[in-house]
Computed example of a mutant assay.
Amino acid sequence: MSTQRHPRKIAATIGGVVLATGAVTGVAFAASGNDDTEDPTETEQAIPTTDLDRAEAAALAETGGGTVTETEVDDEESKYEVEVTLDDGTQVDVQLDENFTVVGTESDDR
């Protein structure tokens, strides 16, 4: 049995590990929901608990009901954004100002 090392096999193994690591990192990045149109350093922030009830109530009043499925503070369009899923599965993003007044809505129009 030879104790000689095979540089090509070692290099191939290291290359495979690097390639696999890159693939895993790419999948994790893709799963995070980031795309080229978003600032990768920007993260979504949930509405603080002290404001959450008021934001949800304003959004549900605007949509006439449904279930709040996501919230965000200080997005690119308004102070608060509340995503509501209606009973038919339609999702509506309700934009609110700092006084919880509706300043816009956007539906996925299913």
Results as ranks from 00 to 15, higher is better:
41 T>L: 08
4 Q>M: 11
6 H>S: 14
25 T>M: 12
10 I>F: 14
102 V>K: 12
9 K>H: 10
62 E>M: 12
1 M>F: 06
21 T>K: 02
104 G>I: 07
37 T>V: 01
90 T>F: 00
42 E>F: 00
54 R>Y: 08
72 E>C: 12
40 P>G: 09
82 V>E: 07
58 A>P: 01
38 E>V: 10
29 F>Q: 07
75 D>Y: 09
84 V>F: 04
9 K>Q: 09
26 G>P: 05
100 F>N: 14
75 D>S: 13
63 T>E: 06
19 L>D: 01
47 I>D: 03
47 I>E: 08
93 D>G: 02
33 G>N: 03
40 P>L: 11
106 E>D: 10
54 R>T: 15
107 S>L: 07
17 V>Q: 12
19 L>Q: 03
1 M>G: 15
107 S>W: 04
96 L>P: 01
102 V>I: 09
65 G>H: 12
37 T>C: 04
107 S>M: 06
66 G>S: 09
28 A>M: 10
46 A>Q: 13
24 V>S: 06
86 L>A: 12
23 A>W: 07
103 V>H: 10
4 Q>S: 10
101 T>K: 10
40 P>F: 03
104 G>M: 11
22 G>T: 02
107 S>F: 04
110 R>F: 14
82 V>M: 04
106 E>P: 02
83 E>I: 01
65 G>Y: 08
60 L>Q: 13
18 V>K: 00
43 T>F: 07
1 M>A: 05
91 Q>N: 14
19 L>V: 07
92 V>Q: 11
91 Q>P: 01
74 D>I: 01
101 T>V: 13
35 D>H: 05
10 I>T: 15
20 A>G: 15
43 T>S: 13
46 A>L: 07
75 D>L: 06
11 A>Y: 08
91 Q>Y: 02
86 L>Q: 15
69 T>R: 13
16 G>L: 10
7 P>C: 06
52 L>E: 15
30 A>I: 00
61 A>R: 10
23 A>E: 02
68 V>K: 06
15 G>R: 03
33 G>Y: 00
87 D>M: 04
8 R>P: 02
59 A>D: 04
7 P>W: 14
73 V>S: 15
72 E>T: 13
26 G>W: 15
91 Q>T: 12
38 E>Q: 14
17 V>A: 13
88 D>Y: 15
56 E>R: 12
33 G>L: 00
63 T>K: 05
78 S>W: 01
86 L>C: 09
22 G>S: 13
32 S>F: 01
109 D>R: 05
14 I>A: 15
35 D>R: 03
71 T>L: 10
26 G>T: 14
6 H>L: 05
71 T>E: 02
35 D>L: 08
4 Q>A: 04
56 E>S: 12
104 G>L: 04
6 H>V: 05
64 G>F: 05
30 A>S: 10
13 T>F: 14
5 R>S: 11
15 G>M: 04
44 E>N: 14
39 D>W: 06
18 V>P: 01
103 V>Q: 09
1 M>L: 10
59 A>S: 13
99 N>Y: 05
35 D>M: 00
68 V>P: 03
37 T>R: 04
60 L>M: 08
5 R>N: 00
93 D>H: 09
28 A>P: 03
20 A>H: 02
107 S>V: 05
54 R>N: 14
52 L>C: 03
